[in-house]
Write a protein that binds this DNA or RNA. Structure first.
Lengths: 191, 191
DNA sequence: TTAGAGCGATACAGATCTGTCTCATCTTCC
DNA sequence: GGAAGATGAGACAGATCTGTATCGCTCTAA
């Protein structure tokens, strides 16, 4: 077992952390292996010993991103729901706190699908779809808990608003996107 | 003046038409110059004689795309508005007819911003922003014509719904996105 | 008929991309 | 001390990327 005193993260961890940052910031295609290797201060063979190919690293990145983001989103939404007696419009507040992070660069999975172009059969596309489906299912379950009528429709409409808010803020960086989204979400429950 | 009988489009036109198709289908970064040259059946120097660089070709593509799309969208929306006495929810029907095209691959300008990554200072990003602003301004003017209260807010909310519909359909290819968007747009005017 | 414009074909340069290979070094455990 | 595993350094291959240079053909206009 090398590096037992943990004075330095393992080569695998340094590679993964660097890739995590660059993949999100610059995109999957724009981030080359050589760049990840250089910035993580690792030998090239240390990379290929830990990840058989770039596609494997991308899959690991997407899986981690999915877990981290969903965990954060659900926790933030549940906290807001417990504190105040409110509806699904709390989603807008949760998203807004995401937007305010200085390194916000949109949704990794939307970005992945866009970068995939016409190649819809890859693993990246499938991971993006399952991420969005898990988010949609959570909102549907939330709608049921709130006793909203037609929870499937509610979730479908909320997903349109969520994706719209993300893309709008990614392009304009205008905080009014959050309030517009909040008004849209509030009205979903008024029928 | 060569090629006067127009039996074959000029090299410039063949390059541009091929690039137009490939840039939209596969994305800007995934489409290489060599590929455009090969598929348009043109010599490499014929490309660089007509377009000083790939960036120039991209700018020409985005400008043309903006003009074509806006012209189509406004015409389709106005036609629907004239025929039936309806509100801004006609936007959902117009978008749906766009989604149904077999080569639909999302919005070029959303895709461009995503592909631009952290490079927000390029010409492509600026063209994407001005495209979205022109669309938003059209909807605000439409809201004024329909005598809706707070037309700026209406346009801001409608843009969130529009971007959400585009991204949702790009990912899921589910026709229910259009009806969800239509319900959201209808409710914007009910306050 | 001749000059020039447009174009095709192709080689080339230099950078970058993913991925493989070899060899030296360092740490840890036995 | 010695074996084994993890790592670093760097050369190398083959593909692809943007962009340049050269040569020759063809058609048009004067």
């Amino acid at each position: 077992m090398p590096n037992a005193d943990a004075s330095l993260p393992s080569a695998r961890d340094r590679i993964f952390d660097t890739a995590y940052r660059l993949f999100y910031r610059d995109g999957l295609r724009a981030t080359g292996i050589d760049r990840i290797i250089a910035e993580s201060g690792v030998a090239k063979m240390s990379f290929y010993r830990n990840f058989p190919s770039k596609a494997d690293l991308i899959a690991a990145f997407l899986n981690k991103r999915h877990e981290s983001w969903m965990e954060w989103f659900v926790a933030a939404a549940e906290a807001k729901l417990a504190r105040q007696s409110a509806g699904i419009e709390v989603i807008a507040d949760v998203l807004e706190s995401w937007f305010m992070q200085p390194d916000f660069r949109g949704c990794t999975f939307i970005n992945t699908v866009v970068e995939s172009g016409a190649e819809k059969d890859g693993e990246a596309w499938a991971l993006a779809l399952s991420h969005k489906e898990e988010l949609r299912a959570y909102i549907e379950q939330l709608a049921r808990r709130l006793a909203l009528p037609r929870p499937k429709d509610v979730a479908g409409e909320a997903m349109v608003v969520i994706e719209g808010m993300i893309v709008r803020f990614q392009m304009t960086a205008d905080a009014r996107v959050a309030s517009a989204g909040k008004r849209l979400l509030k009205r979903i429950q008024q029928d």
